[in-house]
């Protein structure tokens, strides 16, 4: 579905991505794991057009996304729930959800999806008219995921959804990722919480200083000694 080949991104003098290649097959959960600064977020930003790659290709079902504006990439069904959640703090929960569905014009469908989100995240319904910035971190993350889902993405990319959240909330978020995937949405998940990510992923890539150094099915990486040592905090 999504294919990244030899992707390079420069920020000023910093070579953040140095020819990374990976792919996300339709209907699967794929995860990118790696340390801080390995280029995980940069990959997602490049896919959705927020940063311009200096070379390499990004194709969605054969169509190149490289020169498209972010709004057009999102309209093609590639949606990012960004790092740090980036909800609109001065708008209400409901307005945030409506913004998620900004590209859609089927009012009834949007309304129905809003209710679906409230079923998925009952906490959001309680906070419906509340300014999003006044909610807890976990609630804001739920909102960020719900907002991304409101556009009915074909490919949902999530950048560090577990960052700064209590273990219970993390578990809940990962359960929901699994539910979404089971309903047919393809997922590209970026995580520092490598264990949780690999446990639910069909396939994983390890990113180190801008390059893919290892890849394999989630379970295999989870059992790999190198991965265990470097990312799962287990001494050998």
């Amino acid at each position: 579905m999504l294919r990244i080949e030899n992707l390079s991104v420069h920020y000023g003098g910093i070579h953040a991505l140095q020819g990374a290649s990976f792919e996300v097959p339709e209907g699967k959960i794929v995860t990118l794991i790696g340390a801080n600064g390995a280029g995980k977020s940069t990959s997602l930003k490049a896919i959705v057009g927020l940063v311009k790659p200096s070379s390499g290709s990004i194709t969605l079902n054969g169509e190149s996304l490289v020169n498209l504006a972010t709004k057009d990439i999102v309209r093609r069904g590639v949606v990012l729930a960004p790092e740090g959640r980036r909800i609109f703090p001065n708008l209400t929960t409901e307005e945030n959800l409506e913004l998620g569905a900004f590209a859609r014009s089927d009012k009834a469908g949007v309304q129905a999806d809003k209710h679906k989100m409230f079923q998925l995240f009952p906490r959001l319904e309680e906070r419906r008219k509340q300014k999003a910035g006044t909610m807890s971190g976990g609630e804001q993350q739920m909102l960020a995921v719900a907002r991304a889902l409101m556009s009915r993405p074909k490919l949902l990319m999530m950048d560090e959804p577990s960052l700064g959240l209590a273990p219970l909330i993390v578990k809940m978020i990962f359960d929901i990722v699994r539910t979404i995937a089971a309903e047919g949405t393809t997922i590209l998940l970026v995580e520092q919480n490598a264990k949780a990510a690999l446990e639910i992923a069909d396939y994983g890539y390890v990113l180190e200083t801008g390059r893919i150094t290892m890849s394999g099915p989630g379970k295999e990486l989870l059992a790999n000694d190198g991965v265990r040592k470097a990312y799962l905090g287990e001494g050998l």
């Binding site: 980036r86 913004l99 998620g100």
Partner: peptide
């Protein structure tokens, strides 16, 4: 209102 809060997040909402 979205653009005035967060330009990049607004872009991610498919806002022009």
């Amino acid at each position: 209102r979205a653009v005035s809060t967060d330009l990049d997040a607004a872009r991610l909402m498919a806002i022009d």
